[in-house]
């Protein structure tokens, strides 16, 4: 029970600080919207059918938006010197990791909730919501991929927080580690936004889901176990 209270205390503190400072969410929302507007003009979305590229465009916007937020996920701990306060307290390091990761997942999800409808209007001729059966797999893919990004991203952000060039380190370390998340995410989102789904595409979506689930479980468990060393070094 104490572990759950500690987890909630850290998560609540992160949400409260974000609601008060709005440092992370505002920059993430601005970035994702700007990216979509630029894509809209660059690909002349009104003239061309971009259904094939939809998944890719969506995740290019999401991954860099996520990095923008993840880079700031330890800003209060580092800039206000509060990381020592967390390390000093009798909280299992895996609890700190899970709380920070859930906080990042919430912030990423908030941005996605705002961005997906706009993206659909801009780029998709046969939006997924016309095919109600597509909604479930699309959202599940979104949640699984975001979980992976938040999980690995929080880990890399912790490493980066202890360096002077944290803005640089996160994409350099994070992008290669997240490739196994991005490829399936693009496949799932693309297939679900593209109208009718062929048997071959449905099979590919199923395999992609399995890859995401396996990735999320493996990385979540491994990082939670080694987080003590990550924070300690």
């Amino acid at each position: 029970m104490l572990a759950l209270r500690q987890l909630w205390a850290i998560l609540k503190k992160d949400i409260l600080l974000e609601l008060r400072t709005k440092e992370m969410i505002v920059s993430m929302l601005l970035f994702v919207m700007l990216t979509m507007v630029i894509f809209n003009y660059a690909f002349e979305a009104e003239k061309n059918d971009l259904t094939t590229f939809g998944g890719g465009l969506l995740w290019v916007a999401f991954i860099f938006t996520s990095f923008l937020g993840l880079n700031r996920s330890f800003v209060h701990e580092k800039d206000e010197g509060c990381l020592d306060g967390l390390l000093l307290s009798p909280v299992d390091r895996s609890i700190i990791y899970i709380a920070k990761m859930l906080g990042n997942l919430i912030f990423i999800s908030v941005v996605q909730i705002a961005a997906v409808p706009i993206f659909t209007i801009f780029f998709i001729r046969y939006p997924y919501y016309i095919y109600w059966s597509h909604m479930g797999p699309f959202l599940l893919g979104l949640v699984l991929a975001s979980f992976g990004i938040a999980g690995v991203g929080t880990f890399v952000a912790t490493l980066a927080a202890n360096t002077k060039r944290r803005d640089l380190l996160l994409p350099i370390l994070g992008l290669p580690l997240l490739m196994p998340v991005l490829a399936p995410a693009v496949i799932i989102s693309g297939a679900m936004m593209g109208g009718e789904v062929s048997a071959r595409a449905a099979e590919l979506v199923g395999t992609s889901m399995q890859i995401l689930i396996a990735y999320d479980i493996v990385f979540f468990v491994v990082i939670a176990l080694i987080y003590d060393y990550v924070l300690g070094e």
């Binding site: 008060r20 209060h76 509060c82 020592d84 000093l88």
Partner: peptide, 11 residues
């Protein structure tokens, strides 16, 4: 207790 108060400024 250190010279850094370990406090969150926006709490």
């Amino acid at each position: 207790i250190s010279h850094n108060p370990l406090l969150y400024l926006d709490l």
